[in-house]
Write a protein that binds this DNA or RNA. Structure first.
Lengths: 212, 212
DNA sequence: GCCTCAATGGCACACTGTGCCACCTTTGCA
DNA sequence: TGCAAAGGTGGCACAGTGTGCCATTGAGGC
């Protein structure tokens, strides 16, 4: 999960802003994981050492505060695949999706590793916090839009096919992270995602097999 | 979209409650479609002829007010397929999904027809109203949970496969309704959904084909 | 060292959603 | 028919959310 392009050596002000944003995000994630939905924006602001008014300058809602830790992987994937699809016009789309997924879900540094660990706790906290889950869903919605855009430009598939493929591919990424976060497997998120994307491309045989 | 089991001949009080709920839902849908997100709970309440306090007895948030018109189809689908899977243990799961989808998305009466029409307007209003879109996504999240439950009980597929199938199948239903609502096709929602489910089961060839 | 500008925080405000209570209609029963 | 229990409704107060506006302060360019 690269999440940030090598982090250009920025000015003091910019570095402080980035540090504050990350501090708020960590604080919010910890509080949501610890106390569930019974956390106020003021709680987060105070614990992060900023004024409530400042908190809302960084994030539009209190749930949004966890986005930097929660949705980085999805964002990276959506951006990465658009780039890759343009850069390698020969590559089948399935492979574009796989490579971008592997890159986005393989932690590249300590920062990305930490975000992935927070993701685990946040996905758990979502179980009984709809507003928090909405952040997750919104990120995936945006990734779907990006996918629809790429598919519409690079295939001749019809509207249903395009939207369906976007939903299924994004669903594969989402399922991979959710299965990993639930502790239902030993595989790494990146491996799960690649496997999921291949399944989607090849078909789901247990839907056509006779049950019994 | 049956949405309501034949509507048992209820008491006066119950019929009034149902009428009030529907009136609020219609009012909310009309206001959201007309004015976007710039609608207050008080606006909806006043236009529907109830007190704000009463409004919040019917719905937890102002966006939830549109749920009876927006999410009926998805709910019917999720419930229908659980029933059907149990009732016809021989039927391949793909066919269970298809039949339930056809039933849930084929308007059964004027009430269902109306709801489907509102759905169109609401899906459009969602474009610039994240809170409204969250209602849509939450309904699909619940449908996914129902699907995961059915799949876990009736197949031997692993955790990734189960979650992935749930995401893809629900995604097919969602894509079908969204494509229809966007006016990108002449097909009916039910036909689109069935076609989508079959695609998911059989695989998506344009992901493996070489581009050009 | 000064000047500009952006980040911060305080304040007021509209709006959201809920607990509590008082009222009144419906409903069940004598 | 009369009456009491039950439940729907609405008013009120209140904690919390999110934003516009303005003063203060510290960083970065000259």
């Amino acid at each position: 999960m690269p999440t940030a392009p090598p982090s250009r050596p920025s000015s003091l002000t910019e570095r402080r802003k980035a540090a504050t944003e990350l501090e708020i995000a960590r604080t919010a994630a910890a509080l949501f994981a610890e106390r569930g939905a019974a956390v106020t924006a003021e709680d987060i602001a105070r614990a992060a050492g900023v004024a409530p008014r400042t908190f809302y300058r960084y994030f539009r809602t209190k749930e949004d505060a966890v986005a930097p830790l929660l949705t980085g992987g999805v964002r990276d994937w959506a951006e990465g695949l658009a780039d890759l699809a343009a850069r390698e016009p020969e590559l089948p789309l399935g492979e574009v999706l796989e490579r971008a997924a592997r890159e986005a879900l393989t932690p590249a540094d300590a920062r990305a590793e930490e975000a992935l660990e927070w993701t685990r706790g946040l996905l758990h906290a979502m179980q009984d916090n709809p507003a928090l889950r909405a952040v997750w869903h919104r990120a995936h919605h945006e990734s779907e839009l990006a996918l629809i855009d790429v598919l519409a430009r690079t295939t001749t598939a019809g509207p249903l096919e395009v939207r369906l493929t976007a939903a299924a591919a994004d669903g594969a990424l989402r399922a991979a992270v959710e299965v990993w976060a639930a502790g239902e497997t030993d595989e790494a998120p990146a491996e799960l995602a690649v496997r999921g994307i291949r399944l989607v491309a090849a078909g789901l045989p247990w839907l056509t097999e006779r049950r019994g």
